[in-house]
Design a protein around this nucleic acid. Structure first.
Lengths: 124, 124
DNA sequence: AACATATACTTAGCAAAACTAAATATATAC
DNA sequence: GTATATATTTAGTTTTGCTAAGTATATGTT
């Protein structure tokens, strides 16, 4: 009997995100720059609730991408005509990050197609 | 300057496999039982070389699946009319494993569809 | 006979990434 | 005053794929 605190489908779904979240963050930022908290909301909305990241998941991804030179950050404490309650760190994709995104999307497509091949085969 | 022993595309591709390998192994075994070494070959062949697992990757997956009751194993030292060089451990999917496979394929499909949505959008 | 290769399973230890959980801080609503 | 929404940070855990090495037998090559 397994000490199943987490149902196995949740554990599986968690593993599927490995690597992909980085690609999706890069993808969203390539549409337009955002700060961390906003990215969490955009991910939740555009995924229909399937991707509901906690801060502890998203921010380390951003730090990694910045360390790798894929994005840059800039503090935006104020906005013209409106004082922000809390300081925001706005992230923008670099050309290097754009290249990375393209490579990752190609890699993803090839991988997903491969997996689909396995799944669709029915024993004749 | 990063100590890039592994190119970032390889690192990304490695992460994409997380969880999926377990599903694919279950999928292959649901077609017909196999032993470990044969599974490595079937994965390599059916993926067009994209999935080329080392033993140290595959066998722990099999042990996990067996611990979880998704597959059973049986030693097959001899074959009718032909002596095998080395003993083989043949794995078979259990009804529980079959259920798990179905759930995982559904989860995969939903996730992959979601990711495709992100990738296909072009800035208008 | 010595050696390499293909077969076949096992296992120890490492790296990467998502997770939980908590801490910090400000503005607004009740 | 307390709760809630906003917003960032970080420590520690778990899962999983990876490298690398070890064990063992049969077959082919020199």
């Amino acid at each position: 009997m397994s000490d199943q605190t987490v149902p196995d489908t949740a554990r599986f779904a968690q593993q599927l995100k490995k690597g992909v979240l980085e690609m999706l963050v890069l993808r969203l930022l390539s549409e337009h720059p955002s700060h961390g908290y906003e990215l969490i909301q955009r991910l939740r909305k555009q995924s229909g609730g399937l991707l509901d990241l906690k801060e502890g998941t998203l921010y380390p991804i951003l730090y990694r991408l910045e360390d790798d030179g894929c994005i840059t950050s800039a503090w935006k404490n104020t906005e013209p005509g409106k004082q922000r309650p809390t300081p925001r760190k706005v992230y923008t994709v670099t050309p290097q990050g754009q290249q990375m995104l393209i490579r990752q999307m190609e890699t993803w497509r090839a991988f997903a197609t491969c997996v689909e091949e396995f799944c669709k085969e029915e024993t004749p």
